[in-house]
């Protein structure tokens, strides 16, 4: 099976350089080929009932982190907010 790496990369928000495309293509095709011997799925997938999740109460916890703590790893902060490139004119 031939894979369209450029299309997959676009879906994954990755930019693959032209010279690397063929290498990724070859590797991915080999990996996908390995998966082609899997048996047909006869039944619908069942939810995992052996380990049911126990959700905590959906309540906001104030004061767990300060604004500064939440922003300290951000690549760009302006006026106490995360800054991103302009998206509307």
């Amino acid at each position: 099976m031939r894979m369209d790496i450029q299309h997959i990369a676009k879906l994954a928000r990755l930019h693959i350089e032209a010279e690397a495309l063929s290498v990724f293509e070859k590797e991915m095709e080999t990996i996908v080929k390995m998966a082609e011997h899997l048996p047909e799925a006869e039944d619908a997938l069942l939810p995992d009932r052996e380990t049911p999740m126990q959700l905590r109460r959906d309540e906001a916890e104030d004061g767990k982190f300060t604004r500064e703590e939440m922003l300290m790893n951000a690549p760009e902060v302006q006026l106490g907010c995360l800054a991103v490139p302009k998206t509307v004119g």
């Binding site: 894979m3 790496i5 990369a9 879906l11 994954a12 990755l14 693959i16 991915m28 990996i31 996908v32």
Partner: peptide, 11 residues
């Protein structure tokens, strides 16, 4: 990481 992210996106 790119390989696995792309494989996951594909499947």
């Amino acid at each position: 990481v790119k390989r696995r992210v792309m494989l996951g996106t594909f499947v």
